[in-house]
Design a protein around this nucleic acid. Structure first.
Ligand SMILES: [Zn+2]
Ligand SMILES: [Zn+2]
Ligand SMILES: [Zn+2]
Ligand SMILES: [Zn+2]
Lengths: 167, 167
DNA sequence: AATTGGCATGTTACATTGTAACCGATGCGA
DNA sequence: TCGCATCGGTTACAATGTAACATGCCAATT
């Protein structure tokens, strides 16, 4: 079971089989790209795997450093191109307020990017709350605004870190 | 930086007396800082004025260039410190998806940052939709997440640019 | 008046993040 | 085979953001 695919409490990460979690993401990406006629090359798959490895937001240059272990010639454009592809195909999200990237929990269906980001432990939980989307759509419609991209990022403390802070 | 032609009518305020608009913002900032015991120095006021001048998102280095006309010695830290102060006191908002800043429409009451950002003409309209805030709070509460900062940015086309696109 | 302590600003140097432009390789269909 | 598109390598640079330390200033305290 992939850890956050369930819509219930997003911060249930305490312990999950993360190895399986990464593999699962790669499998789904493969399937998805196949269906779309998109080419998930070795390089792109490698980057996607690295994005998922930590299971938390990671910056482009951190990814680059990691990538160089297997692809010594990698340069900034290498990583940015891969990230562009992955984001365009909904496999990862960019978190604007962190200049960082994270694997998407449910790339198979279209959705917007909504995250709860813990300032202490750096975990980011993807939420996909229809009532938030609805409220946003309504607000935009009311202004006659045609939305093409949403960025919703809430920073704060996750339940775990709140408990620790109180202790 | 992108400081596109500002001939385009400001989103949702077709044509307004922008000179007054800037002065008004400065006056209100003065009042607000006074009430809070915060020091709106010459430098900070100058930066705030520059932020308001274009009435659209503007980057730190564009501000720096403009600031240098009156404060020749200004360097990156100069502008970033001023922006930090202004944002901390709710006088401006940072737009994460643009790495840019814009004056706040209603700094007197606490609120979160919610923007509609036109990809064509660069205008950004601040919305403060309680139902969006409510939906977000509910979502965060449901996850046991304690929010300290919200970022809500919708990119797309403003009504004017939609009409132009259809023509 | 002199001292001190906090804050705003000046100054230098650097870190991080992101792109432009051009190239060759590869694969694939006309 | 040729033309064409896509992918990735390579170089160089642009844009954005900070660390660290020095200086000036004002106002409260001594
Ligand atoms: Zn995992
Ligand atoms: Zn946490
Ligand atoms: Zn505001
Ligand atoms: Zn527009």
């Amino acid at each position: 079971m992939r850890h956050a695919a369930k819509k219930a409490p997003p911060f249930k990460r305490t312990s999950h089989d993360h190895g399986h979690c990464v593999e699962d993401a790669l499998d789904r990406a493969e399937t998805l790209c196949d269906a779309q006629g998109a080419r998930l090359t070795d390089l792109r798959r490698a980057v996607l795997e690295l994005v998922w490895r930590g299971h938390e937001p990671i910056g482009a240059y951190a990814l680059l450093d990691a990538l160089r272990k297997t692809h010594p010639g990698a340069a900034p454009p290498t990583i940015y191109r891969a990230l562009e592809f992955l984001e365009a195909h909904g496999l990862i999200h960019r978190i604007e307020s962190l200049n960082a990237y994270i694997g998407c929990d449910h790339p198979e269906r279209p959705h917007v990017s909504q995250f709860l980001i813990c300032a202490k432990c750096s975990t980011a939980a993807e939420i996909d709350d229809p009532s938030v989307s609805r409220a946003l759509s309504k607000s935009a419609d009311g202004a006659g605004f045609a939305v093409t991209r949403q960025t919703v990022e809430l920073s704060g403390l996750c339940p775990t870190c709140q408990r620790e802070a109180r202790a």
